[in-house]
Design a protein around this nucleic acid. Structure first.
Lengths: 233, 233
DNA sequence: CGCCTATCTTGAACACGTTCAAAATCTGTC
DNA sequence: GACAGATTTTGAACGTGTTCAAGATAGGCG
């Protein structure tokens, strides 16, 4: 547990419209720039402080750790994702098109950070870390992301079981995490493979969602939904 | 193969029945003990060296980094997994029972390390790291693990499409990675939830594999297999 | 203005992972 | 036994993330 970090983290929380807001933003921008330019590992806290023109300790006053800077990045891309997906969601009505739009928008937003995204995911994988996408601390950006997939679903013309309709957004988000995992490992030019993954998997999901109402698949669907319900407490 | 990493790692490779074998084993055992006792982060290389009665640099002569100690752990559980799964594979003929056996055996083997498994997965998630389960360097343990799932399949009485039969072991392994990810995040007593996940998902997979030969599902199955083929180059 | 408190800023110091040149030890050969 | 070369071992030193006691600054109040 790292929460002990007392005043430091507390002060740098969310609100803080106080004096230091400018300094906070300056440090954050500098860090993001250096992350893009040099990658995560090669960006030292000393370098961030120096380039921002502040002392090392000052950076720690606003951000509890180097990893907390990554969490800010996480929250930022969340907002950008919603923005990038908005046009498609306003235009399209077909579920497949909407889902593809949201997925592609997510990768669009992440693209500039592919080089250091590995470090991002490394952080995300640690279950004890508050930065994990599954952790309670990350519930806000996660819920926002799930809401995006819910919107892709509810705004569409697709017909499906009520129970499935309720569970699907979270499953789609989970699938999105899988896509991101693939993207992180994707070494193809411009991460074309990830695009192919999206374009290939979306019609598949679309087809399966349609099929789920068929008599032969109903038991399996029910079984899956019951399992999810069990595992969620 | 990890030979690129200079002399240090090269010497500590695989064979090396040379003099230092005892020292190597001593350091490894000490490290594993401390990992269990104190967790990964709280175990310092200095502590490992001191408890093993050697100099710090000596540990680095045999293991390129602290993370390389984790890779040894990874390889070790691989062997144990195969062993633990053997009885069930010798006894059962039903696909569902065999798959459940292999999955449960995997979790059985990992259980004592649940406390520090987070650090393990953190390492595993970094795509640039040779320790990633998807990396070329990890291909040996990965292939062994996939072979285990292939055995679960081929030794069973289940009937399925040839193309699916060929692709399924790798998919099952991928699913297993998902189970492990769930297990790492599982905070329930004795990780019961993970056991429920296995017991719930196995019949589901079994049923879907059976259904995949049905006329309604054939297009979807073909589509999925084509996608996998595309993504694999 | 002068004082008080909360906020912000500083940079030296600490612990850790890692490196490396030097020393010690072993193995084989004459 | 003595030498040469490979193998193994050492521990001081480096760079890094992080901490913290001390100082600087701002805002409110008399």
């Amino acid at each position: 547990m790292t929460e002990q970090s007392a005043p430091t983290t507390a002060a740098g929380g969310q609100g803080s419209t106080a004096r230091g807001e400018q300094t906070r933003q300056l440090i954050l921008d500098t860090a993001m720039r250096l992350f893009r330019e040099r990658g995560y590992a090669r960006t030292t806290m000393r370098a961030v402080a120096q380039e921002a023109g502040v002392a090392v300790g000052n950076a720690y006053y606003y951000f509890g750790s180097k990893e907390h800077l990554v969490q800010e990045f996480y929250a930022g891309t969340q907002r950008d994702h919603r923005e990038a997906a908005a046009p498609v969601l306003a235009r399209e009505r077909e579920f497949a098109a909407r889902l593809a739009g949201v997925l592609h928008a997510g990768i669009d937003v992440l693209s500039p950070y592919h080089a250091f995204a590995g470090a991002f995911f490394k952080t995300a994988a640690e279950p004890t870390s508050p930065l994990s996408p599954f952790s309670a601390e990350s519930s806000e950006p996660r819920d926002m992301s799930i809401a995006l997939f819910r919107e892709a679903l509810t705004g569409s013309t697709v017909k499906l079981d009520d129970e499935l309709r309720e569970a699907l957004p979270e499953l789609l988000w989970l699938g999105y995490m899988g896509v991101v995992l693939y993207w992180v490992h994707d070494r193809s030019d411009g991460q074309v493979k990830t695009r192919q993954l999206i374009d290939g998997v979306v019609p598949l999901v679309d087809r399966l969602v349609g099929l789920s109402r068929l008599r032969v698949l109903r038991p399996a669907t029910r079984q899956a939904l019951a399992l999810i319900h069990t595992l969620r407490h």
